[in-house]
Each structure stands twice: as C-alpha cells, then as structure tokens.
Design a protein around this nucleic acid. Structure first.
Lengths: 200, 200
DNA sequence: CTATCTTTGCTAACACTGTTAGGAAACAGA
DNA sequence: TCTGTTTCCTAACAGTGTTAGCAAAGATAG
C-alpha cells in the first residue's frame, strides 16, 4: 500500500514547507511579524491547513526553537573537540555560543527573545538537556582540579549559561557601533572572570 | 487664568489614570495582555482619548519602563549608602538589583522582557544613565586599588550588568521549585566571581 | 446674550491578528 | 457506481492597534 505512504510523505512535505516559510518570514521581518496568514500565503494553502500540522502559532515557534538548539549543540560539540583541556574547552564553547547568537541572531531571538513568556513550555525541549550536558563535563573537570573541588557543578553551569546569555542580550540591544571590538573584550573578560572564579 | 491651569491639571489626571490602569492590568494579567481597549474600559473613556496622551501603545509601556528604572535607582541608591567600602557597595547593589527583579517581577519584565524588540527606544531613557553611574563609581574605586588599575571601568560595568541580567532572566524561566535556595547561591557565586575577576 | 471658534470625546471604521465551525470537493475502498 | 473518509476552503468570531470624521460642550469675543 504505497498510497498511504505517499500521503504521509505529502503531509510531511506540507509540514516542512510551513516551517520553511515561517523561518523565511522570521529572518526577513523578525519573529514578531510572523503571522499564520502570511505563512498560509507563502505555502499557497488556506489558513486552517496550518492547524492540521501545528496546534497553534506557538507550536511553530517552538519547533524553530528546537532547530536552533540543534544547530547550537552541533556548534558547541565542534568547539569542544578542538581541545582536550577543560579550561580551553570552556573558552572555545563560550566563543562558539557567542558566535551562534550573533550569526544566527534570528534563531537566538526566537529561542530566548520569545523569552520569558513561553518558557514554561521550553522545559520540554529535549535538545536542552544535551546542551547542558555538553557544557557540564569540562566544568566538572575544572572544578575537580581546583582549590574547591566540592563546588556544585550544576551551579557553575547555571552561572556560565546565565552570564553568557546576559552578556549577549544586553549587547544585542546596545549601541550597535564599535560592535566587534567591544564584544571581543566583553567576552574575553567574562571567560577569564568565570574561570578564575572556579579556580578560586 | 486659573481656567487653563485646571484643564492642564485634568489632562494630567487622565494621563495618570491611563498609566495607573495600564499598570494594574499588567500586574493582573501580564504585560502581553495589555490592550488599549482594556485601558479605555478601565478609565471609562473611549479609545481615542488614550491617543491624545500617548503616541501609541509602546509609549505607555515605555513610561512604565521609566517608572521601573526610577524605583530601581532608588533601591540601588539606598543599598549603596549602606557601606563606604566599594566591594561591599557592589555586593549590596547586586543584591538590591536581584531583589528588585524578583519583587517587582512585572516591572522587570516590562523593562527587559519587552526586551530586545523595542530597545532602540530604550536608549532614550535618561533614568538609564543615572543607573549606570550609580554602579560605575564603586567599580572604578575597586579597579583603582586592584592589580590591574588600567582596566576599563565601563567594560566592567557592562559585564556586571549583563551577567546579573542573565542570571535573573534564566532564573525567572526556571524550575520554580527550590527558588530561594538556588537563587541565593547563584547570586553569591556571581558576586564573588565578579569581584575576584576585577581584583585579578 | 449670542455668535464663533476651539477643544474634547465619541462612534465607526480599517486593517490586521489567532483560531475554529461547517460545508464542499476530491479521493480511496467496496 | 456508491459510500465513507480525508483534504481543504470559505466565512466567521473575537480580538488587536490605530485613525478619520463628526457632534457636543466649553471658552472667547462682539
């Protein structure tokens, strides 16, 4: 019965095209300008078809968020492999995270800028746990060989993530001039500060 | 001509009642649920009257943002006065900032959660400069008496603010259980990390 | 006191938004 | 061919921000 399979494939195709259209609209006009009707226009279907594939608008954004975390995870994985030294790993991952935020600005804004409102639902992103575990490992190593080996690594992970996110979000809304220069300094400042904070 | 003055006073009263109503709606239903029509209902005027006092919806939110920064500045000012030691001043101010965020959650979310979108306009908040200067002073002192007195204080201020904001925003969307405990630790962790980062 | 002119505040509309109910057409299986 | 399902659209509901245009009330001048 290849006929049922074709239907499934077609359905999947529509679902995909919805996400493609949504993503294009987000990059072109910002995620706040995203609307169901614009998506419907883009995929050349009527509005209710979208609701056969997604429960609501937020579900679409959530899917894009997942995609974002997948890319971020891949980037961080690569960065980590560049060294076996935990200290260097943390540094490279911080740079990688930073680069992701500014090179995939649209993704980052959907992932967090959508931000505080819908973040009860964000907990249910499995991509998020791989993300945390990726960073957790070198942090553990670093703590282990520090002056305070009893430190809670989850606490440090939390701090790492939060600070990095804060730096990025404050920077994103900032002066827009002297971008490259300041960013480089702020990031370096953060990394040394963080690592020296663990070492004691 | 007391008659013109009365008119001005009345106009100011309406303007005030708009902000009061807006604020009440924000605290009750969250700032995303705020709508011009709900405000109009609350103040018992028709919709267009609101546009005689504010250019648009965002202008109302911006006004609330300003109020938020005024309160925050007052809090930080008090915290600072509790000690003459720059190190302690930074610590107290960090605590104060933290407390503000969690006790005036609605304000904080309007101030930042409105966040990245409308933050080209946020630059034009004069309250923001007093805010930065308040923190800048102890940072300068601390740098001056550190191992690296040539460090840029603005860079450190930037780092301080960003990290604190990051900690708060990540914490706000978090597990909601073990709130008090974790928060206390994360905050303490940040402060020591930051100060030790300056000292070298 | 009346006529004019300005201010004030309303109704109604425009152009959107997310979401859904209900029906028509196309398609699959008997 | 007839029946039942799936697919898909039209149209509507209930909102949103924003504005044009008009009527009533207030203030000013003759």
């Amino acid at each position: 019965m290849g006929i049922a399979e074709r239907k499934i494939r077609q359905k999947e195709e529509v679902r995909c095209s919805i996400l493609r259209a949504a993503w294009q609209l987000v990059t072109e006009e910002g995620w706040q300008a995203l609307s169901i009707r614009k998506i419907a226009d883009a995929i050349e279907y009527s509005v209710p078809v979208i609701y056969d594939h997604f429960a609501n608008k937020e579900a679409i954004l959530l899917e894009l968020t997942k995609q974002g975390f997948q890319i971020l995870n891949a980037d961080l994985g690569k960065a980590k492999k560049r060294s076996a030294n935990p200290e260097k790993q943390i540094e490279y991952m911080a740079y990688s995270y930073w680069e992701f935020a500014f090179e995939h600005k649209a993704y980052y804004q959907v992932m967090y800028g959508l931000g505080m409102p819908s973040c009860e639902t964000v907990k249910e992103i499995p991509e998020l746990s791989s993300f945390t575990e990726l960073i957790l490992e070198p942090v553990k190593h670093l703590i282990h060989s520090s002056k305070h080996p009893e430190t809670d690594p989850y606490l440090k992970l939390h701090t790492f993530w939060s600070m990095l996110h804060g730096l990025i979000s404050i920077n994103m809304m900032g002066s827009s001039s002297n971008k490259e220069e300041l960013n480089q300094m702020v990031l370096q400042d953060f990394i040394t500060s963080f690592i020296s904070g663990i070492k004691g």
